[in-house]
């Protein structure tokens, strides 16, 4: 056996990660944070709080790309000081951190430029750690087998759709996770809970959230169309893994119903909430109440209290 092969077999997967919360989650989507912490702890992943961090940089990319790169790089530098890789719950943060990490590792000139900016704060990007989205952590580091094994109540009576969010996989070259045109991770994770996975038309389309500050109508229309397809496909619920997508599908759902005169009533769970339910956590522990669209119906469906007709 050659040395690298040996290493690959004997090195255990890391279980300690720095948690990168970003801006939107502490601002309005705590339920995502709460449920993720619960579920990951149960799966043996230790989340270490970052002593300090700043915005990943993505929101101001339209203004100044250099500043975006620098903000992302600063977070990576802070993580390098801790010697731990980053887990981000928001795909925007994860994607930006991954992209910048990759680009700076590959492009010496760019690295020098950004390190030039960082110098003023006494930091230097070295490229010693990784950054990942929680979805990638679940399929790559925890593994589907372990997740399946953790399920106490398989959600067999539940039909579930999903919207993973673009930045989990796009742009493919720099995010470097899975094929964005045929993603499997979230599908596999939904099925791991025992739920029936529901496909729908235009599953890969964006929810429109990023332009919500510039134009309101288009994101709402986009989200409405997706929700309609999900409803028509017969899903009882859907899951997201992004705070912004969640705001579009959940927080804005009543507004969409009013605006377009549609009845949707589709509970939108953060994926960790769905997994948490299957693991046996209570709806309270998973902050299910914080959802705008009432999810009690699906809780009763899972527990078999409601007739599943």
């Amino acid at each position: 056996m050659t040395a690298p092969e040996k290493n690959a077999k004997t090195t255990p997967k890391p279980t300690r990660f720095l948690l990168f919360l970003g801006c939107a989650i502490p601002y309005r989507v705590s339920s995502y944070e709460i449920s993720t912490r619960k579920v990951l702890q149960q799966l043996g992943i230790e989340l270490v709080e970052m002593p300090e961090y700043n915005c990943c940089g993505l929101p101001i990319d339209p203004v100044n790309h250099s500043m975006t790169l620098t903000l992302a790089a600063r977070n990576l530098c802070l993580a390098e000081q801790q010697g731990l890789s980053i887990i981000a719950l928001c795909p925007g943060c994860a994607g930006t951190l991954r992209k910048v990490n990759k680009k700076l590792k590959e492009n010496k000139e760019l690295k020098e430029e950004i390190n030039g900016y960082l110098k003023a704060t006494g930091l230097e990007f070295k490229g010693t750690i990784e950054a990942k989205h929680v979805l990638q952590l679940l399929v790559e580091d925890v593994g589907l087998e372990k997740i399946k094994a953790s399920v106490k109540t398989p959600l067999t009576r539940l039909k579930v759709s999903e919207h993973a969010g673009c930045h989990v996989t796009r742009p493919a070259d720099s995010v470097d996770f899975e094929n964005p045109e045929d993603p499997q991770a979230l599908k596999d994770l939904v099925e791991a809970t025992g739920a029936e996975y529901v496909e729908y038309v235009d599953k890969l389309a964006c929810c429109g959230a990023p332009i919500a500050g510039v134009n309101d109508r288009i994101p709402l229309q986009l989200t409405k169309e997706k929700l309609t397809h999900i409803r028509n496909a017969g899903a009882h619920a859907m899951v997201t893994v992004c705070p912004f997508c969640h705001m579009m599908f959940d927080t804005n759902q009543p507004r969409i119903e009013r605006l377009f005169n549609e009845t949707l009533r589709i509970p939108v769970l953060h994926y960790p909430q769905l997994l948490g339910l299957a693991m046996g956590f209570s709806p309270e522990e998973l902050a299910l109440k914080a959802l705008r669209v009432d999810a009690t119906q699906i809780v009763s469906r899972i527990s078999g209290k409601e007739d599943a007709s």
């Binding site: 990319d61 339209p62 673009c166 930045h167 796009r170 742009p171 493919a172 964005p180 045109e181 890969l204 389309a205 964006c206 429109g208 959230a209 990023p210 332009i211 510039v214 134009n215 288009i218 994101p219």
Partner: peptide, 13 residues
């Protein structure tokens, strides 16, 4: 110009 959602579908395809 300000309506791009930066979903990167165009870039990937």
């Amino acid at each position: 110009l300000w309506l791009c959602a930066a979903c990167f579908t165009c870039t990937d395809r």
